[in-house]
Nucleic acid binder design. Structure first.
Lengths: 245, 245
DNA sequence: TTTTGAACTGTCACTACCGACAGTTACATG
DNA sequence: CATGTAACTGTCGGTAGTGACAGTTCAAAA
């Protein structure tokens, strides 16, 4: 088993900001644990799949090329299970539950990725999703013992790393999300629209003219960069921009 | 330090469904770790605060009464920090960052709650939030050592418990939402509508007539008991009826 | 004091949405 | 075979949403 002291040191480093860059964190994880590869993914849902906001991994150039060209991240059942759930997802479980994805797992084996591993869902601000996938080149028996002992370490390390990624993004991206903040009235009209009210009804409720309701709604659409009230409301709900009724 | 074997056993039990009821989990946690109190909270954001969807705790009747009557959960800075973030929140950190809440912490001390502890944010679907707050009656020094050693255990146990809570809620609530279940096509048209597509565009994408798109959308509106596509999409996003993947 | 941002209003023309009418086809289940 | 469910289509007429035109008022920040 891995040295417990080394694990605690790693957790300290990640918690107290010593791993600002993904590469540092990945290197530290691979050094401390017997991990072959790591993949960190932040995404938000779209109609026809996922918009990948951030993707870091330790694949070599060749493996990454295969992963990209075959668009594995679009169909990878592990990603689907992990991004949709809360529980850690075992690679072998995903493989059993999606027999039709067997070719995918063969392709993954080509690039040294599929033996044993786990994907950890991570908490994110409303509507977003993130995961850390961990891959080990171990025998099933060896992995099951190793997993039982270190899943808690993986989980905490993943959470802490994810937190520092989000904090880093918040400070870096604070500027370009300024224009996406909705004003009070914009939020109000969106909220009532999400409640099924027409422009005329919203105008009556808020005590303003129908034209003004349309004005706020147009502003909201522009800020959210969408083309319809329906899409605006979907975005607003996903990003928790409007209150739940 | 706590027996490592007992910790691993606890994690196994929680992972493999042996803790369906919060009371069982809480009892197991308090037995395994030197924990005074636990609080599990699921919530969703509202305009003026939080709507608490589920709340379990190990307070005694008197303490719970105080907590409720003083509505501590509405102003508790620990809940605010934990529900809004990703990182584990130390009770003492929250206390330092919100000096104006000092009376609250005094009130908490009355009911044996505030000495040392941590609150763990948990990943949740579709705009919801959850946390597990852990409280220990330890000296600061004792707690810092204990925390360093067991935060990873707390984090994984919290994640696994939270997962089974969500799964339990999903199976329990599946019956009375029978008529609210959408068919495949209804989900598809809602999804594309949420992506800002018009009926004509959706018809083209799905390779069916515009009239048929309207048919599915009408069915979806009827099932969801709403009056507009916008409201339908808002509902669907909130209830995670349309794919977040 | 100028500037900026939020809140507010009017009209025109066009497109999208929505309800109500009345059907067909295919497949699984009892 | 009957029943039920999902998927599918057409037409009509009214209402709602959308973009582009062109403004006013007020308060706070620069």
């Amino acid at each position: 088993m891995t040295d417990q002291q080394a694990v605690l040191d790693l957790l300290d480093i990640v918690e107290y900001g010593g791993c600002a860059e993904p590469e540092q964190f990945f290197a530290l994880m691979r050094r401390t644990f017997k991990i072959a590869h790591l993949l960190y993914l932040e995404a938000e849902p779209l109609a026809d799949g996922l918009k990948v906001c951030r993707l870091h991994h330790t694949f070599g150039a060749y493996a990454a090329e295969i992963y990209r060209t075959r668009a594995l991240h679009r169909i990878d059942p592990i990603l689907r299970l992990a991004l949709g759930g809360v529980r850690p997802v075992e690679w072998t479980t995903a493989r059993r539950r999606f027999p039709e994805c067997e070719p995918l797992f063969h392709a993954a084996e080509e690039i040294g990725l599929s033996t044993e591993g786990v994907a950890l869902p991570l908490p994110s601000p409303a509507g977003r999703m993130a995961l850390l996938a961990i891959n080990a080149n171990m025998s099933p028996v060896e992995w099951s013992i190793y997993r039982r002992c270190h899943l808690r370490d993986f989980q905490l390390a993943a959470n802490l790393f994810h937190a520092s990624m989000l904090e880093h993004a918040a400070t870096a991206g604070a500027i370009d999300e300024r224009d996406m903040r909705l004003t009070g009235r914009e939020t109000e009209v969106l909220t009532w629209s999400a409640a099924g009210k027409s422009y005329w009804e919203i105008a009556t409720i808020l005590g303003i003219s129908e034209r003004t309701v349309r004005f706020f709604m147009t502003n909201a659409r522009r800020k959210l960069n969408v083309v319809s009230n329906t899409q605006a409301v979907a975005q607003a709900v996903r990003h928790a921009l409007i209150p739940t009724i």
